[in-house]
Simulated assay, not measured.
Amino acid sequence: MDLEQDFYKSLLDNLYDGVYFVDTDRRITYWNRGAERLTGYDSEEVLGCYCRENILEHVDDKGVKLCETSLCPAVKTLRDGRAREEEVYLHHKKGHRLPVAIRVAPILSPDGKVVGTVEVFSDNTPRVISKQTIEELQRIALLDPLTEVGNRRYAEMNLKFRLAEQDRYGWPFGILFIDIDNFKAVNDRFGHEVGDDVLRMTARTLVGSLRSFDLVSRWGGEEFLALVINVDTGSLLGVADKLRKMMEQSSITYGSQTLSITISIGGTLALNSDSVESIVRRADDLMYRSKAEGRNRTTLG
């Protein structure tokens, strides 16, 4: 029997997807290598812990916490014994929110009772930059080396392209100018190494929260720019609020301290008369209005 169990454990450990088991109290009883790779948490850190205890902390695309409510997919399956699939965002050990597709199924005892669940989850990031793409961007100096998203030059190139496309075909787009709230205080209190971790966490959360055809770049310092295509004012606000809520649910833990981050956003739709400078200036001014009105908010104009 031990050989058979070792065989199946070896199979699960070699899956690319994450797999973990929980009992009826949602205590984690198994955690494969795929789960370690996708979440950053080693099995020794999570076995015996409850999945809702500052580990995965699933949220939906509106930033609503699922693990503490009846909305939790595992809770639903424990109650009704039905398998289900959902798309959620987990909390990575490095702090950022990672979109994942999850599949939950019941674990049944010999007499048919639900004694736990098995969850299989996979990376659902809509924009995974391949290693070859990263190397090419580095070669032509369009990649920000710290966050591994496009840099300011990359953003300006794409803005010029979208403005020309709008002028020629009338295809609408907007931009979101994003600034990390109180970033200087983070650097002053925790040091620049932690500040770099916050920048990386922010970039990964933004990339994972955008649609596959949108893009995010680091404009400079703690500022990012998201280029959002095929939107009107309402849908641009929806994208902005999703980014803001996902950042609210992102955090980094240092020892006993948990560092949570918020962002302020200024958003605007492109006008036919816009240049790169004018649309960015307008979004930047709107972002500062969000700062002045209390931070962690979006202002459109």
Rank of each mutant, 00 (worst) to 15 (best):
K93N: 07
E277C: 00
V149Q: 09
G301M: 12
Y20S: 13
H58Y: 13
G301A: 15
G95V: 10
V149Y: 11
H58T: 07
D167F: 05
T202P: 13
D232E: 13
Y154H: 13
R152W: 09
H96E: 07
I140Q: 05
Q138N: 09
K160F: 07
G234D: 14
L269T: 01
E86R: 12
L47W: 15
L159V: 09
F190A: 06
V22I: 15
R79Y: 03
F21D: 15
R281S: 05
R139S: 10
K93W: 08
G63K: 03
S260K: 02
V19D: 14
N230W: 09
D6N: 11
R79W: 03
I261Y: 01
K65A: 14
Y89R: 08
G18S: 11
K65Y: 04
V59M: 13
L227H: 05
L210Y: 07
L259Y: 02
Y288F: 05
L15D: 09
L271P: 01
D17I: 12
L225H: 09
K65H: 04
I261K: 00
R27D: 08
V115T: 12
V59Q: 12
S10P: 07
K93P: 09
A164G: 15
N124F: 09
F177V: 00
H96N: 13
H91C: 10
R189M: 02
C51L: 15
N182Q: 02
L38W: 07
E293I: 00
E148D: 06
I140E: 01
V88I: 14
R168M: 11
D2C: 05
V216I: 10
K242Y: 04
S235Q: 03
E193S: 03
L163D: 11
G34D: 10
A141V: 10
S212P: 04
L12P: 12
N54H: 07
Q249Y: 02
I134R: 15
D214M: 12
M247N: 00
E86P: 05
T205F: 02
K291M: 06
A155K: 04
K9V: 15
I261L: 05
T298I: 06
G150A: 02
D6P: 02
T39I: 01
M246K: 04
R152S: 11
Y254I: 02
S275M: 06
G294W: 03
S235V: 02
H96K: 08
N151K: 11
E36V: 01
F173K: 12
T29K: 14
T24W: 08
D284T: 04
H92E: 09
K245C: 02
V228N: 09
D111T: 05
K94H: 03
V46S: 13
N54I: 02
I55M: 08
S43Q: 13
D60N: 11
R79H: 07
D17V: 02
H58P: 14
E4P: 06
L269D: 05
V228Y: 05
R84S: 13
D17C: 08
Y30L: 14
R103K: 15
S278Q: 04
T69M: 10
V194D: 11
I175D: 03
D188A: 06
V118T: 14
D6H: 12
A270W: 06
E53H: 14
A292D: 10
L159F: 07
V104T: 15
V88N: 04
K94I: 04
N158K: 13
P172W: 01
A74Q: 15
C51R: 12
E136W: 08
I107Q: 11
R295T: 07
S256Y: 04
K65C: 10
R282C: 04
W31G: 03
T299L: 00
E136Y: 08
A283L: 04
D167H: 14
